[in-house]
């Protein structure tokens, strides 16, 4: 406590626990696992009960939208992790560049999603629509889960954009720097989780036809 050895006065590591911060972020991610995991269980059960209807309904989805969004999200996962490498190396501008690219990919994902949903809506397939309600109960369930799960995932993407945008601001302001970048890492962890959820959503919804 009252150490007489000459430690630097303003030790930047004082009262700082990066590992604890990351662990806290992981704990939050576990709550996300419960949220989405529960939905995946619901999906699994209904797919089991309404096997044929789920496959018929999945044929309505355009797997090209899904595949393209998979590539977009995987690449954005790469760019956010590269932004962390850049900040570790002290390459501030490169880190900012990678963060902005990540945000662009995330927005690209949402634009893609917008076109996909618009196409569904124009075919009269949206929650509670007459076209949808005429279908079998299995297909209604499929599209219900489709809108809820990809919608909730989309909401996470939007939150990710805000989060990474804030990190970009902090990096510009040097609040995130080559010594102190745990916030950027936590934002990255969140972003990778969003990616992992999509890794499972994509084959389950788009590729079971």
């Amino acid at each position: 406590m009252s150490s007489t050895t000459a430690t630097p006065i303003a030790d930047p590591h004082l009262h700082r626990d990066d590992e604890g911060s990351r662990l806290g972020m992981w704990l939050f991610l576990f709550t996300e696992l419960i949220l989405f995991g529960g939905m995946f269980l619901v999906f699994a059960v209904y797919k089991f009960i309404h096997y044929e209807e789920f496959h018929a309904a999945a044929r309505e989805l355009n797997s090209m939208f899904g595949a393209l969004n998979t590539i977009i999200l995987l690449t954005s996962s790469l760019t956010i992790v590269l932004s962390i490498v850049a900040i570790q190396k002290g390459q501030k501008l490169l880190s900012i560049f990678f963060q902005i690219i990540t945000i662009f990919f995330a927005l690209g994902f949402m634009v893609n999603k917008y076109f996909e949903w618009s196409a569904k809506f124009s075919h009269g397939i949206y929650p509670g629509s007459e076209t949808l309600l005429e279908k079998s109960s299995g297909e209604i369930l499929f599209f219900g889960l489709y809108y809820v799960m990809t919608g909730l995932h989309g909401l996470h993407v939007v939150i990710g954009v805000l989060l990474i945008g804030y990190m970009t601001y902090e990096t510009i302001k040097n609040k995130v720097n080559s010594d102190k970048y745990v916030r950027l890492e936590s934002a990255g962890l969140y972003w990778h989780l969003v990616d992992i959820i999509w890794i499972f959503l994509f084959p389950l919804f788009y590729l079971i036809a």
Partner: peptide, 12 residues
């Protein structure tokens, strides 16, 4: 999907 998630978890 599990293999992909493993790679994301371990590396990214």
């Amino acid at each position: 999907a599990s293999v992909k998630s493993y790679l994301v978890l371990e590396y990214f």
